[in-house]
């Protein structure tokens, strides 16, 4: 979920130098740094417009450098990272966590729900050598951040658009729509309605391009919850599709288990008996169906022609 930026970055043309960009890494898979490393010619152009002061994977190292814009990948998972993020904050004017780990703890936040010490002991015969906090946290749980770019992984266009906005002196816009809207725009068949697939599209923020429904599969929420997500309603819908309570919770506590609305679901949600409000939710679902079926026919016939 994205937060509105608090203060605009000082306009670049008021600087007597190129703006400084740092890319930091905490606990992560490196996949979000690839948003830049996979950018091809755009990466080289970026290097002309910014003074890249720290980006270890690209060979530029100055972890303590002052930066105008700092991108941070990964969750805060060790005592060293908890200290480092404070230093990064102090030396960065615009701090932008990128990706699910930095914005919600990532998949490793699943350990927050379990006994992490026992987990470490089961992986390592000598757990005393392992520096690991019991939780994997979002960056914003430790320091103030200007803008979060969610997603597992964050997308190259999102990161480049945010950097371009900042270069132009404008505040980047955060995505707020839900995947459902993206499916409608693209004319994609609703997998929840037509296949009873437990799709997280109704509560997941856009940014990926509604990829999973485009392949005929349910969204698994790797971009995290959108604004005002109706999590409990969707959970009830999944229960009515036949998922048991544990399977329903597992659906939400997957890539983005650290996100607040999912934590709330874990604490508060219990499946309701099939009646009353449950029926209403099914009816709501049906009212969206005809439109989706129209789209599905269009889309299906288009595809047949293609082949």
């Amino acid at each position: 979920m994205t937060s509105p930026p608090k203060s605009p970055l000082q306009p670049v043309d008021s600087l007597d130098r190129r703006p400084r960009l740092a890319v930091h890494k905490l606990s992560s898979c490196d996949g979000c740094q690839l948003a830049l490393l996979n950018a091809g010619a755009s990466l080289l152009r970026l290097a002309e417009r910014f003074d890249i002061v720290h980006f270890a994977e690209a060979g530029i190292i100055d972890v303590d450098a002052e930066a105008d814009i700092a991108l941070v990948e990964g969750s805060v998972s060790t005592a060293e990272e908890a200290e480092r993020i404070q230093t990064i904050r102090a030396r960065s004017r615009w701090l932008m966590p990128i990706g699910a780990c930095a914005t919600a703890g990532g998949p490793q936040a699943l350990k927050n729900l379990a006994n992490a010490e026992a987990w470490i002991a089961s992986s390592y015969p000598e757990p005393q050598h392992i520096d690991a906090r019991p939780t994997a946290d979002a960056v914003a749980a430790h320091v103030h951040v200007e803008l979060e770019l969610p997603g597992c992984p964050v997308s190259t266009p999102q990161v480049l658009a945010a950097l371009a906005s900042l270069l132009a002196g404008a505040t980047p816009l955060a995505e707020q729509d839900k995947i459902c809207l993206d499916c409608k725009r693209r004319g994609q068949v609703c997998v929840l309605v037509t296949q009873d697939a437990p799709c997280l599209g109704p509560i997941t923020v856009t940014g990926c391009g509604a990829l999973c429904p485009s392949l005929g599969r349910a969204c698994y929420g790797c971009y995290g919850p959108a604004e005002n997500p109706e999590v409990a309603t969707l959970a009830q819908r999944f229960a009515e599709l036949g998922l048991d309570a544990e399977a329903v919770k597992r659906r939400f506590l997957f890539q983005q288990s650290g996100a607040a609305p999912f934590q709330q679901l874990l604490r508060e949600w219990h499946p309701k008996p099939r009646a009353g409000s449950a029926t209403a939710s099914v009816d709501q679902g049906s009212s969206m169906t005809s439109e989706d079926r129209d789209h599905s026919m269009i889309s299906a016939s288009g595809e047949d022609e293609d082949d």
């Binding site: 998972s77 699943l110 987990w119």
Partner: peptide, 20 residues
């Protein structure tokens, strides 16, 4: 930092393996 994938895979369904 250890992310403990082998541990949090436990309890998940085999169909969830590719995405995890």
């Amino acid at each position: 930092p250890p992310r403990l994938f082998e541990q949090f895979l436990v309890g998940h369904h085999y169909s969830e393996i590719p995405d995890l």
